[in-house]
Write a protein that binds this DNA or RNA. Structure first.
Length: 791
DNA sequence: AGGCCTTCGAGTCTT
DNA sequence: TCGAAGGCCT
């Protein structure tokens, strides 16, 4: 099926035929459909290594793109382990990291200051808010979040304000704000994440020599997680894909779970069509899971209609069955899980104890972690929750970075506002507003507008600006570490937090920031993302013509210029390098840092299914598998949404190597209300031979076809529990005392006559699920509801 | 300027 | 229900 590769490179050893074929493909466009656990990263890195090792290309001829810093790092580490090559100098990185590198090199063409700052999502939102206040935009009608989303969405579709289709007065207003936002960013010399991509794309699009240069340079373009690319990223890739080079796209349409943030799986099909891709290779051999787990994943995902089609297989045996557990409440579900985890970790019997690090608890939404955390905490089981605030997103860190940014660029109004009165120095909202008005009238930055202010407030402002300016002078020529220390002292941040009652953590974080800067300088060489690269070996001689638009008045206009016949390699354009400080600030924006540092103790891993993508664990719990939760209520309305939920479930299942638990609860406390849930429809989509119900599989009259709220949680009682651990909630076996039976007709004063579907609980907890013809199925507490049996 | 109270919202995430 | 965020009061 795959032509045996007549290449004896040791790199190709230990690869299966499909992998080998992918790695040693000829220099043509290719799409690799890499299933979960099929060695995707391995193929990607080995492909690069093989191209280099066989002498087909040099390190400078590769462009490899990922989504996350983690993936990029892993690729570099693995490549570095395969070949003695300086991976740092190579163009391997995230979309945004590479765009940043590109824009620093071509900052003039991009109409940006060389030391432009990058706004993260928080900064962007506050920039939008600030702008809206200034222009009296009604926050009721146009929530800042919505506008932020609108702006990002436009950019990700490659649309500048003048290109957005306006269908209503609302649209017109939004576009107007978008335009104002752009002007504000331009004025302040800052770019948001989407802007990094869009600006880089436009420079390539509008400058033939630049584009052609990179096309000549990058013989091979490799993309990881191609199913997650958005419209703009795909367009960006196309800019590099010239006539002579090849695009090697690796992805898995079944793991496309980011449509909600603009990812277009359709890019895969478009790629095949537009690039006339002749080589499509499926990696279906899975090296991760036992076949019960894999069969479950395969059967589940086969329910999706829009697929390129792929089936995972494994050489490992069936393994343990997939265990399914039904709990009466979310608390009981968590309790059961804790017991099960303890058992799994302890080992015993034929089982070996599993490290806690190898146990993952997955859920659909972050809110679900709470109950689980409580249960783990009470049982003193160490755990670690992913998600939440990352290091560089913490308030004290953002404050410190704002001061640093002001040293680098006094016109950064976002940073100015953030710290002008922090620590407090008598500059209230009033004064800031007046300053903003003054700045707007003159058309200058807040920093520059300070001289125009008067009175007491003016004096305070002047003192602040003087402080910043002094600091800038003081820190000139100092090392990054020294700059940081001066800043922390002079700004008063350190003293402020030291004086604060609960400020110890924050002080610690600030100290950690100094360390981060230190290690950035020494280990990272502080330039991977930001500093000019070595001169391109492909370049020619002279000077690159400066286009008129690069003076930077309207970035939305295509840059027009004569083709530059003589031509310098773009990378060489920047003989200037970025200061360590500017480089560090870039680093801080592009790499938001880990969310939790204490990796010391072995701990159970808690995370959403989304953040589990790409990871694997010996033992996985997927919890809260209930209609409305997983699949989530908000995705259930349309078919595409449901398919994405199913892919999400597919991702969840395929995380497990050896043991997989799926659980759900009949009731769950959500938004302060008890919700009665039906088990997820996904259970119906699993192969019976591969699963084992730890609790009796409940009857389901028509299953999910009846829709939400119509399911039939099982009656509990009198069954043999298979689960290893003893049940935290004792199984109730006593006879009911309320005199109702399943199937009985009852009368309710409000809902009328109905049929008892299910009964459960005892005494005051006793409740019944009753089907009323007019009002649908209701759960009623028998101690409250007035029910009379009807004949 | 800082603390208290009301209000709102509640999905998944990376750069 | 719970948390954050914004407004209002002192």
């Amino acid at each position: 099926m795959f032509p045996e590769v007549a290449d004896s490179s040791p790199l190709l050893q230990n690869l299966n035929p499909e992998q080998r074929a992918a790695v040693a493909l000829p220099n043509e466009h290719a799409l690799i459909l890499a299933g979960a656990g099929s060695g995707k990263t391995r193929v990607l890195t080995t492909r690069i290594a093989w191209l280099l090792a066989t002498g087909q290309i040099g390190p400078g001829n590769v462009l490899a793109v990922t989504f996350t810093n983690k993936a990029a790092k892993e690729m570099m580490t693995r490549l570095g382990a395969m070949l003695p090559v300086n991976v740092r100098g190579m163009w391997i990185g995230t979309f945004h990291g590479l765009c940043n590198r590109f824009l620093r090199a071509h900052y003039k063409l991009a109409a940006l200051p060389q030391a432009f700052q990058i706004l993260d999502t928080q900064d962007q939102l506050s920039a939008v808010k600030r702008l809206m206040k200034q222009h009296n935009v009604d926050e009721e009608r146009f929530p800042a979040k919505e506008l932020q989303w609108f702006i990002a969405g436009c950019k990700e579709d490659g649309l500048r304000p003048n290109m957005v289709e306006v269908k209503s007065e609302e649209d017109r207003r939004k576009v107007e704000i978008y335009q104002l936002y752009e002007e504000q960013c331009q004025r302040e010399g800052v770019v948001d994440f989407a802007e990094l991509m869009l600006r880089a794309y436009e420079v390539l699009r509008d400058n033939d020599p630049i584009r052609e240069h990179y096309q000549r340079r990058f013989h091979h373009i490799l993309i990881d997680e191609f199913q997650d690319t958005n419209k703009l990223q795909y367009a960006w890739i196309k800019m590099f894909a010239g006539p002579g080079n090849s695009v090697f796209a690796v992805g898995d349409d079944d793991q496309s779970i980011y449509a909600f943030r603009g990812a277009r799986v359709g890019n895969m099909a478009d790629f095949v069509r537009e690039f006339s891709v002749r080589h499509q290779i499926k990696l279906e051999q899975n090296y991760r899971s036992y076949s019960n787990i894999l069969d479950s994943a395969n059967q589940l995902i086969s329910n999706n209609k829009t697929r390129l089609g792929k089936n995972l297989r494994t050489d490992q045996g069936a393994g343990e069955p997939v265990r399914i557990y039904e709990a009466p409440t979310d608390m009981a579900e968590a309790q059961w899980m804790v017991e099960e985890i303890r058992h799994v970790v302890r080992g015993g019997g034929p089982d070996e104890g599993v490290s806690r690090n190898e146990v993952a608890v997955l859920y659909r939404s972050n809110a679900q972690s709470r109950v689980i955390e409580t249960a783990l905490f009470n049982a003193a089981v160490p755990y670690r929750v992913y998600g939440g605030l990352r290091f560089f997103e913490r308030a004290e860190i953002k404050h410190a970075l704002s001061y640093l940014r002001l040293l680098e660029n006094p016109n950064d109004d976002t940073s100015f506002i953030r710290v002008v009165n922090f620590p407090a120095r008598g500059i209230g909202a009033r004064s800031v507003e007046q300053l903003q008005d003054a700045a707007r009238t003159v058309g200058c930055s807040l920093h520059d507008a300070v001289t125009a202010t008067t009175g007491k407030a003016g004096a305070n402002l002047a003192a602040f600006v003087a402080k910043i300016d002094t600091m800038r002078a003081q820190t000139e020529g100092l090392t990054l570490r020294e700059i940081m220390e001066v800043m922390l002292q002079q700004s008063g941040l350190l003293d402020h937090y030291k004086a604060e009652r609960d400020g110890a953590d924050r002080v610690e974080n600030l100290e950690e920031l100094v360390n981060a800067a230190e290690s950035f300088v020494t280990q990272e060489g502080f330039g991977r993302d930001a500093v000019a690269l070595p001169v391109d070996e492909l370049g020619g001689g002279a000077i690159l013509r400066q286009s008129p638009a690069s003076q930077g008045l309207d970035p939305s206009l295509p840059e027009v210029h004569e083709p530059a016949p003589d031509y310098v390699p773009p990378d060489a354009e920047t003989g200037e390098t970025l200061s360590p400080l500017a480089a560090f600030l870039t680093h801080a924006a592009l790499e938001s840092g880990d969310n939790q540092a204490n990796a010391g103790q072995e701990a159970v891993q808690l995370m959403t299914v989304h953040s589990a993508k790409g990871l694997e664990f010996d033992c996985v719990f997927v919890t809260g598998l209930e209609e409305g939760l997983f699949p989530s209520e908000r995705s259930m309305s349309d078919y595409e949404g449901l398919e994405e939920e199913r892919r999400l479930m597919y991702v969840a299942i395929t995380r497990a190597r050896k043991r997989l638990y799926l659980s759900y609860s009949q009731t769950r406390l959500l938004h302060g209300q008890t919700r009665y849930n039906v088990k997820s429809r996904f259970f119906e989509e699993l192969p019976e031979h591969a699963v084992k119900w730890l609790t009796p599989k409940n009857q389901n009259f028509g299953g999910s076809a009846f829709g939400y709220g119509m399911g039939y949680p099982s009656t509990r009682g009198g069954y043999q529990r298979e689960s290893i651990a003893s049940p935290p909630v004792p199984v109730q076996k006593a006879e009911p005392t309320h005199g109702l039976r399943q199937g009985m007709k009852v009368f309710h004063t409000k809902f009328g006559e109905g049929t008892v579907l299910t009964l459960e609980g005892q005494g005051l907890d006793a409740r019944a699920h009753i089907q009323f013809p007019r009002h649908g199925a209701k759960w009623l507490a028998l101690s409250v509801a007035k029910l009379t049996p009807v004949n």
